[in-house]
């Protein structure tokens, strides 16, 4: 067997799942399994300890699906990437999620991997990080007694979340006035792997940037904002020179974590292209 012995639990409701998660020691949540199963195999190969209890959320129907609740899109935590990709709700500022989903891993993985698993696995190369920070997405957790906690994706990547709660859904406010661009660089091995990603959101007011978020995923540290570049853009007019000028106003500590010169250069290319795309789509 490729995995060590474990005890498998398949709760039928979120309430049952949260109570199990709080009561069991050494428990891990199984969502789509694309991170977890490979991790468990790797740990076994290395002779390391693996968790005793696995709680699968696959049968918890209330955690599936994409729908609108008021003016916010609600994405159930075990909604798979391809179901989000195919959702008719991805319009306005949310349309960028289709591009992001399109580029995640491979088709069978997109059929299995979940939104919640992608985020809560907290791998540094999680691709949804930067776009969801740009879209000001919120994560909604539920505890064993039904208590709810909401934190921003940005905060989650800075500080994590309480380990006794389960992510129920991601909520993102629809914003008809926002313009969003996303640029991703991948490297090719057997399958393509993300190397870096840039997502920029702004609300143009005339020719000026407003409420701009520049979110970076360098795949070495967690997705984060470049507040130095945001500050520069907020003071700038959206002209064709801005993509080039912006390169003089980067928080270089974020980008220069990459060791290779070409990767540092590719970040600058990504910033330029994402900004040019953003400005090109200004109404």
């Amino acid at each position: 067997m490729l995995l060590n012995p474990l005890t498998f639990y398949a709760p039928q409701s979120l309430q049952e799942a949260t109570k199990l998660y709080a009561s069991l020691s050494e428990a891990r949540i199984l969502a789509g399994g694309t991170f977890l199963l490979n991790s468990l195999k790797l740990l076994k190969r290395k002779g390391l300890k693996t968790p005793q209890n696995i709680i699968s959320l696959r049968k918890v129907e209330e955690l599936k699906g994409v729908k609108f609740a008021g003016d916010s899109l609600s994405i159930g935590s075990i909604t798979v990437i391809n179901d989000l990709f195919n959702s008719a709700h991805l319009t306005d500022n949310l349309a960028i999620l289709r591009t992001v989903c399109r580029n995640i891993s491979t088709n069978p993985i997109r059929n299995m991997a979940t939104i919640g698993g992608n985020l809560t696995s907290r791998y540094t190369w999680t691709e949804l990080g930067a776009p969801l920070i740009a879209l000001e997405a919120m994560l909604n957790f539920v505890g064993p007694n039904g208590e709810q906690e909401q934190i921003s994706v940005e905060e989650f990547f800075k500080n994590g979340a309480k380990a006794t709660k389960i992510l129920s859904h991601v909520s993102i406010r629809r914003d008809k006035t926002a313009t969003v661009s996303y640029y991703r660089v991948k490297k090719m091995s057997d399958v393509d792997v993300p190397l870096l990603g840039v997502c920029i959101k702004t609300n143009f007011i005339g020719d000026r940037f407003s409420k701009t978020r520049v979110c970076i995923n360098n795949t070495i540290t967690f997705a984060q904002r470049d507040s130095v570049l945001e500050e520069f853009l907020e003071k700038s007019e959206a002209s064709k020179n801005i993509p080039q000028e912006a390169l003089e106003h980067l928080n270089t500590a974020i980008y220069d974590n990459r060791s290779d010169d070409y990767k540092k250069a590719m970040f600058r290319v990504a910033i330029k292209r994402a900004l040019a795309d953003l400005i090109g789509r200004k109404k």
């Binding site: 199984l30 199963l37 696995i54 699968s56 798979v80 088709n107 069978p108 993985i109 059929n111 299995m112």
Partner: peptide, 18 residues
């Protein structure tokens, strides 16, 4: 790859119990 429901799925990372 196998099909589970209507979706192409990787059986090497699917727990049979699931």
């Amino acid at each position: 790859t196998v099909i589970i429901g209507k979706k192409a799925t990787l059986s090497c990372i699917t727990l049979v119990a699931n």
